[in-house]
Nucleic acid binder design. Sequence first.
DNA 1: CAGTGGTCTAGACCACCCC
DNA 2: GGGTGGTCTAGACCACTGA
Lengths: 256, 256
Amino acid sequence: MTSPAKGSGAVNERPQYVRISDLLRDRIASGSYGVGALLPTEGELCREFRSSRHTVREALRLLTTAGLISCRQGSGCRVMAAVPHQNYVHAMRSLDQLFQYASDTRFFIEKTEVAVPEPGNFPDIGTDGAEWLIVRGLRLKRDEDIPICASTVLVNKTYTDIAEDLATGAGAIYRRIEKRFGVEVAEVVQDITVTSMPARAALAMSLTQTDVAVQVRRRYLDKDKRVILASVNYHPADRFSYTMQLRREGAKRPWS
Amino acid sequence: MTSPAKGSGAVNERPQYVRISDLLRDRIASGSYGVGALLPTEGELCREFRSSRHTVREALRLLTTAGLISCRQGSGCRVMAAVPHQNYVHAMRSLDQLFQYASDTRFFIEKTEVAVPEPGNFPDIGTDGAEWLIVRGLRLKRDEDIPICASTVLVNKTYTDIAEDLATGAGAIYRRIEKRFGVEVAEVVQDITVTSMPARAALAMSLTQTDVAVQVRRRYLDKDKRVILASVNYHPADRFSYTMQLRREGAKRPWS
DNA sequence: CAGTGGTCTAGACCACCCC
DNA sequence: GGGTGGTCTAGACCACTGA
């Protein structure tokens, strides 16, 4: 039960650091080390398990990766959760995969202006009287005239100068802003609902207001949760499809 | 440029292992170490950077975590990708967050049978002539009669016995199967489209076939990609809303 | 200031892969 | 068998935290 590894003969067990990690895991799960509490120091754990510091640290690293503890130089390792976090993730290499636009689309700009957006359309962006750069346009399948969606993009006034670039070149607006201003989109919130087609979108796509539309709204936030850019897109419902794939990650034991 | 750490005076730089990791990163990004190739051995890296093996391994660990390399005992560390993976993740602690059902809903079963599903409705499940346990029902807001959606659930014949449990107790079907049969949902694929309300769903929810419906299909796969369970849900469009939040993770440098 | 975790060295044995 | 990465030890200096 104590020390199987090292130079002793039979080593056909799991590594020591895994066993230590599992043991600590159990203590955390059972509440022996409650959430918010400090773990014993590395030195104490070394003595308890009669292991070197490196081995103990390896065990702590596993717990850190699992999100169970968080260590800070000078103070100690604190229990953050009793069970591992993040069971399923929808991962993507780039935001483009979120949008699921085929690479052969282009964005045709109808109008660009700096104005105060009429309220009601963007209830959750905090557009209370502030001015935004408003870009309206159509996303088209390249080399065809089939519109994918009608878009309205609201750009934070800080980045208004991006308007100069939009006429030329290509690429998503958010990525151009990232490049030109050196900011980073840290978070995107997207929601999908079904509505009827608004007048402007219907006109732009040669549809009528009785047609059904899928409204996709997105907010792009920087690390301080400021809105860099927001967009509202109306898709003809019969052409809309959204697929996502989630896979399980981490956390094997505490769920059986 | 060579060795700043250790006992030498000024140590106010980033740790050695970070610098080594960054350097290797650059070589991978630039193609010096191409995708699929083997990295130099740990011993060689130790000599090149005049560092201990521990330090080099720490650097390699960073690259492993970033998904850039993959190391195997006996053979070596292989370059897996030139740029980090998984830039944005939609993380959730449980699949329930994917479905976004409020906790105060219940599932009312109308009918349970073992049969061959009519084709056309489930094109991508591989239901070619095989029998499935088919469960039809309504998801309701608890203590009210407002239906949230009409559901058809197809359970792999392996788990047909779960039918016995469904009449009693509560909980999502997938989770009951997990518990009873000791399997694990390793992956979920979900897609969202807009259609008209099918006859059966319209009837069940006191709607008409001219009403607009949001169709949400899901496949639950085990680790071998076998379908454990699939479901098709029809939501009244005016009550449907789907929100997701993605945050950036890892991978800071190669995107500017 | 004492004590913590973060980094680093030098050396060792082992399990695994490939020749 | 020879070389690889995986695990482990013993000891050291440093940066940070908190009293």
